Computed example of a mutant assay.
Amino acid sequence: MPSNGDAPVTAYDRLASSIRKQILSGELRPGHRLPTELALSTHYQVSRNTAREAIRALAGQGLLVVKRGVAGGTFVASPTTAQVSESLMSGLALLTDSADLSVSVLMEIREMLEVPAAELAARNRTDEELGAIHESLFDPGRIDPTRVFVNNRDFHTGVLRATHNPLLEVLAEPVFRVLKERFLRERASADFWVRVDAEHREIVGYLDDRDQAGAREASRAHLRYLRSVYEKIDRIQG
């Protein structure tokens, strides 16, 4: 019997959990075709409806893909980086409400990811990637206010992309989006974007010169400034 107010675990929850564990452990690889609903229900001693609900739940989580037709069936999904990032973003957004995931915690994660990323970008960036980062720079006095957030995001994702480590971007993008949606930077002081622009240009200068140590320390200083501003905004909103 469930205790402490927990919801009862259904048969399809147990089946979905079993299949999920096999997928996450690598026992079932992307593209693997699952048995039919009838075969699953027989093997796990559940009804076909239970097997169908478990498959539907896992498909909703992006772990399975159901294809119709002669060559159809149920297959282990091959998720894209965008899907993984979207899933992480949803989880982080919920945690900011339910588990007191503060702006300080989110900015600590950004510093852990982006400081070494700036160093890697200085070493690994291509001329094309550097050009894209340059294009994200903006004049705070001239840019369309609706574009400033886009350019700011493009700068940071451009640096991450220049590391040639795709996992860094996958991990950082959800944090960017939660910060943007949860903490209103419109409340920052008037000179906020002026300083952001100046610090971006300093980082780019180090990327131009392939100065890894300079890029690392400039990125650290920039993120600590952002953290101080976001924490102040968070206190005002709280």
Score class of each variant (00 low, 15 high):
V76C: 07
R56W: 06
Y12I: 00
E135L: 09
G72M: 14
R147E: 08
R48L: 05
L94V: 13
V65K: 14
E173R: 04
A132E: 07
L120Q: 15
H200Y: 07
E135S: 08
A132I: 00
A71T: 11
D6K: 11
E202I: 10
G205C: 07
L58R: 01
S17T: 04
V178Q: 10
H156S: 09
R177V: 08
F155R: 00
L15A: 04
D209I: 02
R235L: 15
A39Y: 02
V150P: 01
Q22E: 14
Q237Y: 12
F149P: 00
P166E: 12
L167V: 15
T74E: 05
A39W: 06
R182S: 02
A172V: 02
K21E: 15
Q83M: 14
R220C: 08
S18E: 12
G131W: 11
T81K: 05
G131K: 14
A172C: 03
A121P: 03
L179Y: 07
D208W: 04
E231Q: 13
R153W: 01
A39R: 14
Y230F: 13
E108T: 13
F149Q: 00
V229D: 07
F75E: 01
V229G: 09
V194I: 11
L40R: 15
D208H: 11
L184G: 05
Y206R: 04
L40C: 11
R153Q: 09
R227H: 06
E27G: 09
A82T: 12
L226Q: 14
L15F: 04
E37L: 12
L137W: 03
T10K: 06
A39H: 11
S102W: 10
T81C: 01
F75T: 02
D139Q: 07
I143K: 00
L130W: 12
E111H: 06
R220H: 14
H43M: 09
F176Y: 15
D6G: 02
M112F: 01
G73L: 09
L58A: 05
Y225I: 11
A188R: 07
E199R: 12
E114M: 04
L226V: 13
G62A: 12
G69R: 12
L15P: 07
A117E: 06
H222Q: 03
N152D: 15
Q83A: 15
V84H: 00
G238A: 07
A122I: 06
V148R: 09
